[in-house]
Amino acid sequence: MRIATPPPPTSAPLRVALYSHDSVGLGHQRRNLAIAHALRTHLPALTGREVTGLLLTGVERVVGHLPADFDVVRLPGIAKDAHGYAPREMSVPMTDLIDVRRAILSGALGALAPDLVVVDRHAFGVDDELLEPLRRLRREQPGTRVVLGLREVLDEPEVAVREWRRVGCERVRELFDAIWVYGDERVTDLRATGAVPAELHDLVVHTGYLSADRATSSFLRELQRPYLLTTVGGGHDGADLCRAAVQAPVPEGLGHVVVVGPQATPSRREELQALAGPRTEVLDEVPEGLLAIRSAEAVACMGGYNTVCEVMSTDRPAVVVPREEPRREQLIRARSLEATGAVDVIRAAELTPERLGRWFADNLHRSVDRSHLRRDGLAAVAGHAADLLAATPQEICHAV
């Protein structure tokens, strides 16, 4: 029988764990990394305690810089294939890989004994790898607060409903104290759309977009200025946008920087380099994507959550070319933001180099006011975390 460890003195740092399953792209880790910076920045003033923690991630490296007093636990990588999920690097059965990931998660959470756990998007990870580690944490550290963080758009509502059935609302209520939705409910409300079941509505808090006050370093590689920017996030997709971008006409006096992403294949980079004009530069990545967006004259991008939030933290004009398969999440996000005047949209089927070039030419020297949107989600997340941590056990009741 394990004897419960007495709680640390109130002067001890708050311990935070942020988990993301990380099968495709970099968005899950990037979102948790932004939250880690926000908690490290804002929680000490709200709680009187410093913050330390772990990023639990399946990405081979951190994209960006860790906040002070944070470290990384890297899970063996997974990827999607025609049958679902598969090991990204290792030649072992998927069940064995999940056993390894589950053991790492259980060990890390058990040893860290976090005050707060934030789980990105998938409540119990891949193949329920996080389910037993969370149950063990509930038994051994009942004071830990556990939060499920969701993008403001999951997918079409009927797809989300099927996913919730697989996850199980009862299990979510058993193990989670809150559901943070990282968006403005006036633009997209997951309760109103049916993308979150009614049984869980009382747990839902819309935080606002994780947009304003994103942490950056002070370094940006010197780029040809002034410049246009096209960026496609991690680079596991976005080939059509990059192909149109490198061939798009560039207005006189400007350069065009096309960032294909660190996960783009070498063959794609070679193809794009061969197609690029003399004033178009093709890069794998830039050290600070947000700074690159802030310094650009205009931006073309896909509709991933993090890139769109970075764009919305600026007044740079932006056109979004959303991915539409296999999920329509990016299209729904792009259309909803277009309706508010925050971005323009070009559908993938309508994208050509000429049309993209015309959009760039028409939007030079323009700024976009996005102040009508709730973009302070990072500061709001810290406030919600402080409230959860201050709540008594009686104020947070778990279903059994």
Results as ranks from 00 to 15, higher is better:
residue 52 T to H: 04
residue 274 A to K: 13
residue 141 Q to N: 15
residue 24 V to S: 02
residue 256 H to E: 08
residue 400 V to I: 11
residue 253 G to M: 11
residue 86 A to E: 07
residue 387 D to H: 12
residue 355 R to Y: 05
residue 351 L to C: 06
residue 198 A to K: 04
residue 75 L to W: 01
residue 278 P to D: 15
residue 3 I to L: 13
residue 7 P to H: 13
residue 42 H to C: 14
residue 65 H to C: 13
residue 127 D to W: 11
residue 275 L to Q: 12
residue 97 L to W: 06
residue 311 V to S: 08
residue 222 E to M: 02
residue 356 L to V: 11
residue 139 R to L: 11
residue 329 E to I: 02
residue 320 V to G: 02
residue 141 Q to A: 14
residue 139 R to S: 14
residue 53 G to E: 03
residue 38 A to F: 10
residue 274 A to D: 14
residue 51 V to K: 04
residue 35 I to D: 01
residue 119 V to L: 09
residue 328 R to E: 00
residue 200 L to N: 14
residue 155 D to G: 05
residue 111 A to Q: 08
residue 41 T to D: 12
residue 99 D to N: 08
residue 143 G to R: 09
residue 371 S to W: 01
residue 311 V to Y: 06
residue 378 L to W: 06
residue 371 S to R: 12
residue 17 A to I: 00
residue 75 L to P: 06
residue 16 V to C: 13
residue 266 P to W: 10
residue 70 F to N: 09
residue 203 L to D: 11
residue 261 G to P: 07
residue 277 G to D: 01
residue 362 D to K: 02
residue 136 R to E: 15
residue 194 G to R: 11
residue 335 R to P: 11
residue 110 G to F: 14
residue 394 Q to M: 12
residue 127 D to K: 14
residue 101 R to Q: 06
residue 11 S to Y: 07
residue 339 A to H: 10
residue 143 G to S: 11
residue 6 P to V: 06
residue 155 D to S: 06
residue 49 R to C: 05
residue 65 H to Q: 13
residue 339 A to M: 09
residue 278 P to S: 15
residue 65 H to K: 15
residue 300 A to Y: 02
residue 94 M to H: 14
residue 306 N to P: 12
residue 272 L to D: 06
residue 112 L to Y: 00
residue 146 V to N: 07
residue 286 V to S: 00
residue 199 E to G: 04
residue 242 C to N: 05
residue 71 D to Q: 14
residue 215 A to G: 05
residue 36 A to T: 02
residue 29 Q to W: 00
residue 84 G to T: 03
residue 149 G to V: 03
residue 372 H to V: 07
residue 114 P to Q: 04
residue 110 G to S: 15
residue 247 Q to R: 12
residue 328 R to T: 05
residue 82 A to G: 11
residue 73 V to A: 06
residue 243 R to P: 04
residue 328 R to I: 05
residue 129 E to H: 12
residue 203 L to E: 12
residue 223 L to R: 00
residue 394 Q to T: 12
residue 264 A to Q: 03
residue 360 F to Y: 01
residue 4 A to V: 14
residue 204 V to K: 08
residue 16 V to R: 10
residue 2 R to F: 10
residue 13 P to L: 01
residue 228 L to K: 02
residue 280 T to R: 08
residue 215 A to D: 01
residue 235 G to F: 02
residue 33 L to I: 04
residue 69 D to V: 02
residue 8 P to D: 12
residue 311 V to C: 12
residue 146 V to S: 03
residue 327 R to C: 09
residue 188 T to G: 05
residue 227 Y to D: 04
residue 91 S to F: 13
residue 226 P to V: 12
residue 1 M to D: 07
residue 242 C to E: 05
residue 229 L to E: 03
residue 15 R to F: 10
residue 270 E to R: 12
residue 355 R to C: 04
residue 40 R to Q: 09
residue 358 R to G: 02
residue 291 L to K: 07
residue 389 L to Q: 03
residue 84 G to I: 03
residue 108 A to N: 00
residue 371 S to N: 00
residue 170 E to Q: 15
residue 358 R to W: 10
residue 193 T to S: 15
residue 398 H to C: 03
residue 373 L to H: 00
residue 141 Q to T: 14
residue 203 L to F: 10
residue 345 V to H: 01
residue 275 L to S: 10
residue 189 D to C: 15
residue 241 L to P: 00
residue 324 E to F: 09
residue 204 V to W: 07
residue 350 E to P: 15
residue 319 V to Y: 02
residue 282 V to Q: 01
residue 260 V to H: 05
residue 28 H to M: 02
residue 381 V to S: 11
